[in-house]
Nucleic acid binder design. Structure first.
Lengths: 187, 187
DNA sequence: ACCTGAACACCGTTCAAGT
DNA sequence: ACCTGAACACCGTTCAAGT
């Protein structure tokens, strides 16, 4: 069942980190929310870094699954772009939260190595998918150019989410994405 | 003189926040670095929020001055773009740090209102300058379209900085900016 | 297998007290 | 005007002890 304490902890921690980041995550608050003592949280996750690594790992896995399904669902470029950006929009819709890995990237200096690995993997999953999508439109393009463009698209969307979050306004996200589309950033 | 305790505190705090963010900023570490006790830091800045607000205010002021000078220095579009992006590159060159307001935006939910005001002002200063720059190239464009494009450029650059920081590689920033230029994002 | 209370060194903040 | 030590309620972490 997915109602085990460990999974409940992960779910609560994910919400907290997407809202406040890694540094602000508190084992004591988390424990209170779940109904156990903070010392018990350490039974499931020895350190805060272990919790965050599990969180980021799960997040990257889910992203990979989502992107596989999205790619399989359509060949239409505009629909792929719409499906991709909609995923980042959802975080903002969810109480002005951010992409888990986006907010953790801002705290990169404070992340344990095991967490960094998973955050980096999330980026790889995204940029590989984007490079593949861009490559279908421009099959003659070099792999290096596609990877640079994919990284640019990923960075631009994370940035749009960051700025929109700072304004507490999803409409800002939409306007920025529309400007990206108009400029031809998505190929 | 700029060697007063208050200014030394501001300088040390700025470095710390640009590296680790608002939440990770510690009055006790700051005090140790400056050579006073943490209780004394509260004499200069009653709360952590007061310190961060002063920090962000100073940062936004400096940005406004820098941008005024940049605008006065040249009419050439490519040079304006180069000068603008170079400013964000500098933070990365400085031990992989981030834009003070960029990293604080990621922690937006935890910022006191007085800090948010200054972070928002930094964004305004930037987007107004960008809209003006973009408007010189396309005088016939509507103000609304220019503001949306300006916000998009700002978001894209903050995102580029965020992703490059996560890779601890300034070259990533350069590649992403080059992709933006190639796509025509800067007009 | 899972949870707990108590302890440790941290944190921001307050305040009475010093110079 | 500027600084301090001591106290307060917080924090992550450890560990011996419980069931």
């Amino acid at each position: 069942m997915s109602t085990e304490t460990r999974d409940i902890l992960l779910q609560a921690a994910r919400s907290a980190v997407q809202a406040h980041g890694y540094n602000a995550l508190s084992f004591r608050e988390l424990a209170k929310e779940v109904g156990i003592k903070s010392a018990s949280v350490h039974y499931h996750f020895p350190t805060k870094g272990d919790l965050a690594a599990a969180l980021a790992r799960q997040y990257a896995d889910e992203a990979a699954t989502f992107l596989d399904e999205l790619r399989a669902s359509t060949q239409d470029h505009a629909q792929l772009v719409a499906g991709y950006t909609a995923a980042f929009r959802k975080a903002l819709e969810n109480d002005n939260r951010m992409c888990l890995c986006g907010i953790m990237t801002a705290e990169y200096d404070d992340l344990p190595a095991a967490v960094r690995v998973e955050v980096d993997r999330f980026t790889s999953v995204n940029t590989r998918w984007l490079a593949d999508m861009l490559g279908r439109r421009r099959p003659q393009e070099s792999l290096q150019a596609l990877e640079s463009q994919a990284l640019a698209v990923f960075a631009a969307i994370e940035g749009a989410q960051l700025i929109a979050r700072g304004r507490e306004d999803v409409g800002t996200f939409d306007r920025i994405i529309a400007a990206y589309v108009a400029a031809g950033l998505f190929g």
